[in-house]
Design a protein around this nucleic acid. Structure first.
Lengths: 199, 199
DNA sequence: GTCGAAGTAGACTAGTTCGTCTACTATGGG
DNA sequence: CCCATAGTAGACGAACTAGTCTACTTCGAC
């Protein structure tokens, strides 16, 4: 009863969840309070600027989680298998939420005109992810020039397929992306015989 | 042409524009009236169910325009050049709107929980576009099984790159997509003979 | 002319949204 | 024991939301 667990964390978790499902605009204070079970006043204790602060910080949190997932997949597996793992995670999430949930970072980027901080944070996440992914590809023998644009393609197509999956209520596009990118990664990384080491 | 029966069309155009920029949630009645310059009453004359009808129909209109653009590009050019033309159009639009505008159909698909009709319409557009694109690729010598998934990859990555472009305020991801997909299309269509491998 | 379709202008209700406010409660460290 | 800390509960107002309504204008066809 005496809510020992941080109201702040519950608010951020709720915000990430709501952004995924209903976008930034659908992440209202009322919903935030309902989902997190936190009192109205507590929100303004932890986030001086109210809703915008929650959304912005939640976007940063989701972005860090995204980068972390990417890193752990890349460090444990070869690029083609890492991609598989990431796509599979997205696929499961789509299906389990009955195609109602897409990427919170993408949602923050799109809905970010109303919450500029969230848009900036989302952009930074995508740029960091691209760089990280490109580095991993280079480590697997992909030429630097190619690595960057392949990384961009991977991120764009996975995010796009996820969003289109919500619209079509299917995983078709995600499956397409996996099929084609797997093939691309296999041919691109063929040059290296051995697997590489994480940092 | 004085008592021009233009109000309806102006409303739909405004809705497409607003969906692109601010998403479905940002497409409010007040904005719709301001942008279109139409009287409040006129909206409810033409769209019995109000805002939802406008958004839904605007999504269908934008979807048809999207398919039409795709068709005209594909019929006039080879796949690789058609892709170039489409990406270039998206790129120009991003830059000209100062990275504030993404695809109205994607926005409708994401914000569509609040307006179910728009989501359905967006989904149908993507499925139709995939089929159309796949058919075009097949016509250019890409095996049927490959054509469908390449079409899915193209749509997903262009849509994703557009959305990420808004978040990052750059065309980097779009350029990545163009670079990689151009290469993919060139090898897929020109080596129409038997060099395709796995799945 | 007159009549009606399409349009404009704007008041009005009812519901939501966000943020501020007061008042109360549990917990644990000094 | 005391009380600061972090929490709950909920009233409140200003600003916005969508949709309904009345009253007036402007055009083209008959």
């Amino acid at each position: 009863m005496p809510a020992i667990r941080q109201a702040r964390d519950r608010l951020l978790a709720a915000a990430v969840e709501l952004e995924s499902r209903h976008g930034v605009a659908g992440t209202t204070v009322a919903e935030l309070l309902k989902v997190s079970g936190v009192a109205r006043r507590s929100l303004y204790m932890h986030f001086a600027n109210g809703r915008d602060d929650v959304v912005t910080e939640a976007t940063a949190v989701a972005g860090q989680a995204f980068l972390s997932d990417l890193r752990s997949a890349a460090s444990a597996l070869c690029p083609a298998r890492a991609l598989d793992a990431i796509v599979e995670r997205v696929r499961v999430r789509l299906v389990e939420t009955d195609f109602d949930s897409s990427c919170p970072v993408l949602a923050a980027g799109l809905g970010g005109q109303t919450v500029p901080g969230a848009r900036v944070s989302a952009g930074q996440t995508f740029l960091a992810a691209r760089q990280q992914l490109a580095g991993d590809l280079e480590g697997n023998g992909v030429p630097a020039a190619q690595a960057a644009s392949i990384a961009g393609l991977i991120l764009a197509s996975v995010e796009g397929a996820q969003a289109i999956g919500v619209a079509t209520r299917s995983t078709d596009f995600l499956d397409d992306v996996r099929t084609q990118l797997s093939a691309l990664l296999l041919t691109s990384t063929q040059t290296t015989a051995t697997n590489r080491t994480p940092e």
